[in-house]
């Protein structure tokens, strides 16, 4: 089946399934596939509002959540999504696995694979870990964050949240501010937003801007007011305390003074600006508390939408509409 040419990516998608077994990154997705995931997530969101929050879509499927890094939000979100789709789920965290005995990722994957799971959701501190797993496993691999590379479901839930508020992605000015260099959320978001036609600005101290970031098709600045000016969406990225040791910036106080999102800075954006943060937040570092809890903030919407988007991804990768019609 060949997909027809998509001219308006924000309209109803012409595809009905994903053309892949894995979700390794936004880099691999075509705009029509992104639109399909977001539209499917709309339907999944409805499931979450029912009194009985469960559909049989993944009944009999086994999903392994393999987490090599601590994560509360993402792991919980995936687990709820899997359970709402009736999948059998299994959580493996680094501390309770044989990794501590020195087993390699490749061997762990082969052992898991021998038990024939349908999908593996992987969170790992090394960029490219999901690609390694994908080369070894027949199971579908979903990237739940690999090193500094990508966190595709975060970008999808961010896009879903933006679309819910703004009814579109194309043409919006999105300013992403914070530690760009070490952020997988940044990479997935700029890939997704530029594919969908948004006007993306990235902002942070020069020490935390990736090499040649303009080649992603974004505009980079260290002037926060310029990034925020007339923005439709402001997305803040977490500043990690340990970055001071790498001399990326002198102190958290100075970071907040130069880049922290305050009421005053926010006033330069569009009146209906929305403010996002992938969490966990450092109040008083990248974001002032009154802003985080203020009327522009959609931070908790992001968390809520994460479940629906992950349900959509799991459902579509497991066969989606095509699978249902075949059955």
């Amino acid at each position: 089946m060949s997909a027809p040419v998509i001219t308006h990516v924000d309209e109803t998608p012409a595809v009905t399934s994903l053309r892949r077994k894995d979700l390794l990154g936004i880099a691999d997705l075509a705009p029509d596939e992104i639109a399909l995931i977001l539209d499917t997530a709309e339907a999944m969101k409805e499931v979450g509002s029912r009194p009985i929050k469960k559909v049989p879509a993944l009944r009999g499927k086994t999903v392994v959540n393999l987490f090599y890094e601590p994560s509360t939000r993402t792991r919980t979100s995936f687990e709820i999504a899997e359970k709402r789709l009736s999948a059998d789920t299994l959580n493996i965290a680094i501390a309770s696995s044989s990794v501590v005995k020195g087993e390699t990722l490749a061997d762990t994957a082969l052992n898991l694979e021998a038990m024939q799971p349908d999908m593996i959701v992987l969170r790992h501190s090394s960029s490219g870990a999901c690609h390694l797993l994908s080369r070894i496993c027949r199971s579908g691999i979903i990237n739940a964050g690999d090193g500094m590379h990508e966190h595709p479901t975060q970008a999808l839930l961010d896009a879903f949240t933006i679309r819910a508020r703004k009814k579109r992605l194309a043409g919006l000015k999105v300013a992403i501010i914070g530690d760009l260099l070490h952020s997988r959320v940044l990479r997935s978001n700029i890939l997704l937003l530029t594919k969908m036609g948004a006007d993306v600005w990235v902002c942070g101290p020069p020490t935390l801007i990736p090499t040649d970031v303009m080649r992603f098709g974004v505009r980079a600045t260290s002037a926060v007011d310029e990034a925020v000016a007339d923005a439709d969406v402001i997305m803040l990225l977490r500043i990690q305390l340990e970055r001071m040791e790498g001399a990326f910036f002198p102190s958290l106080r100075e970071y907040f003074n130069v880049f922290g999102m305050t009421e005053a800075r926010l006033r330069r954006a569009k009146p209906d600006v929305i403010l996002m943060h992938p969490g966990p937040m450092n109040r008083g570092v990248e974001i002032a508390s009154e802003v985080a809890d203020g009327p522009y903030s959609v931070i908790l919407d992001q968390v809520a939408n994460g479940v629906a988007v992950r349900m959509a991804v799991l459902y579509l990768l497991a066969g989606g509409v095509e699978h249902e019609t075949a059955a």
Partner: peptide
């Protein structure tokens, strides 16, 4: 190598 490709792939340069 610290360049666009490492930046894109999230590899330390």
């Amino acid at each position: 190598h610290e360049g666009f490709h490492a930046a894109r792939l999230g590899l330390r340069g």
